[in-house]
Design a protein around this nucleic acid. Structure first.
Lengths: 184, 184, 184, 184
DNA sequence: TATGAATGAGAATTCATTCAT
DNA sequence: TATGAATGAATTCTCATTCAT
């Protein structure tokens, strides 16, 4: 079963989503196609586990970084969280490419939404607790804006690797973006 | 050929990407499947044109709004541009949903990148010309950040329709985000 | 399409129901498996047509014989109708074997029920018109009994070919059975 | 092994022939699929035993009734035997439905033939002994006719439950059919 | 230019059977 | 004796593409 998931991830990374057929996954796992169905009800279930695992891992890393820094608001926290997100996304850029660009998004939707919600709630709670340190009226909305903006910037940077923007510069810009916004 | 593209768009909107088969598109266009290949080398080409047209239209609208306001920098310009983008995305929410969530993203990639580049360059030029009015060191990077953030926020808002964020509130937040960032 | 039905009939007769696979039928028809689906929605539809045709043919023959003789009730009519039924069943004993014994009955059910109903109604009408010539109280019931008994006897005789019963003897017994019953 | 046969009968009745897979039977029997093959050479063997048992039981009941009445020929004997057959078939209508309509008949063939033979021989013997009480020339043929007709009528009545024919009426008709035939 | 029947490789899935433990 | 994971051939059905008319 672990072998199957690993094989699925492998097929996705090596051959792309279009080649993600049960036969290919089975072959890659070194088992027969029939055996797949002893562990998974159908093809989609395999894909789901692969995707779930991926976002789960990313979420774990980011949540860890965020929790650690929850005490001291400010540029440091934003930077570290963004850094953690970047690292998590950089860890398996190939899989990110497939998951984020090759798969129909609705496959990742739920998992990604969960990741966003998790971080957003943390952020909203924090912002609500420090109302005085931001000029944004609604913490929930502010959290929604910040999380979406940072997430997308991070993903596009990892995926597109824009030559003009170094990793450090990106982090600087993110800090400026979030800082400026919350204090605007 | 116009009929084919229209039929393709129709199939996409009515039946979704999974039903986007050459036979169905041909039927919807009122021609035979063989005739498709007189105008398009393969299925992907039809899809590409449909997608291209979509983003082209969005780009047109946004660029128009941006050009109009290029003279007076400031909250007004950001707001109006974002407003134009929102309107453009709202115009065909169903197609947006299919294009942005159902299709593998890499199909839209190039066209969307073109749209972003276009707006980004406009923005970068503008920022470069008004170096004194921003604290961000690199206009190109700043434009990249601003465009990506606003685009993603707009798309997610149109797609997810978060109950807690009204259209006006969204525009306010965008203005705050961009304003705060550029002046941070 | 005619070729497909013929091929289906052929496969059924030559190889039996278990071998009635879409690929085999396609091969037997000298076409590719995909072409099957241009004419039939699924495998069952092909089988249905083969079965329908078979019972239709049998029904036609029997109804013809029955109509011809409807004027003169009596041993002659029964004998001729039974004869026609026997001939119809003997015409393609191999297919009868498959249709009646190899296929799950519920596949033939409707068609066979139609055949029975057709003959039964003819018989019931006739019996009702000649109430005085039978001692059975209910024409509908009598028709049900007669038709089922004769049909089954005929089918089993054709299928089992009991050595002890010649064709003529069978017809004699049928006449005696029906005659004795209606006058009992 | 008893458990397997019982489970097989259960699967047949609850889920139908299509669901009669080795895995399901094994599960229903509370054993593993592999263990099936310790008691039966293959899937067909299990089915055979289930079917055999069924017809065996029916045969037992009918033979018992027939033996009991063998002394006094006449309407009473026919009626009681037919009654016994009806009761036997009514006892497990669900299984009858599966065995007679869902299964390919040739699976039941041998066992059913045995049942028929058994009753037929009893009847033939009896008829031979009372030559004077029938006008039919050949006892064997007469027995064949009578047994097939009554059996089929009974089965169809139980299976189709024709509203117009009550149980008692059916028995009356059978008596009339057999009586009229033998004396015709 | 247009047709549309024909193609055929390839997809997901099932299930009777085996065999190492 | 019992297990149950593993097998893998076989099944039904789809669909992008072709090509003779």
């Amino acid at each position: 079963m672990e072998r199957i998931v690993a094989a699925g991830r492998g097929v996705l990374v090596e051959h792309g989503y279009d080649a993600f057929s049960t036969n290919r996954v089975a072959t890659a796992a070194g088992i027969s196609p029939g055996s797949l169905y002893q562990y998974f009800p159908d093809k989609a279930a395999i894909l789901d586990v692969v995707i779930d695992r991926y976002w789960e891992e990313v979420a774990e890393r980011v949540a860890a970084a965020l929790s650690e820094r929850i005490a001291d608001f400010g540029p440091g926290m934003v930077r570290d969280t963004a850094d953690a997100l970047l690292s998590a996304l950089e860890a398996d850029r190939e899989l990110l490419r497939v998951v984020a660009e090759e798969l129909p998004i609705h496959r990742s939707r739920e998992r990604r939404a969960a990741l966003e919600r998790r971080v957003r709630e943390l952020a909203a709670t924090y912002l609500a607790a420090r109302r005085e340190s931001t000029r944004r009226p609604d913490p929930a909305t502010a959290a929604w804006v910040v999380v979406l903006a940072v997430e997308n910037l991070a993903m596009r940077w990892v995926l597109d690797q824009p030559a003009a923007v170094t990793r450090d510069a990106l982090l600087d810009e993110m800090v400026a973006l979030v800082g400026g916004y919350l204090l605007a």
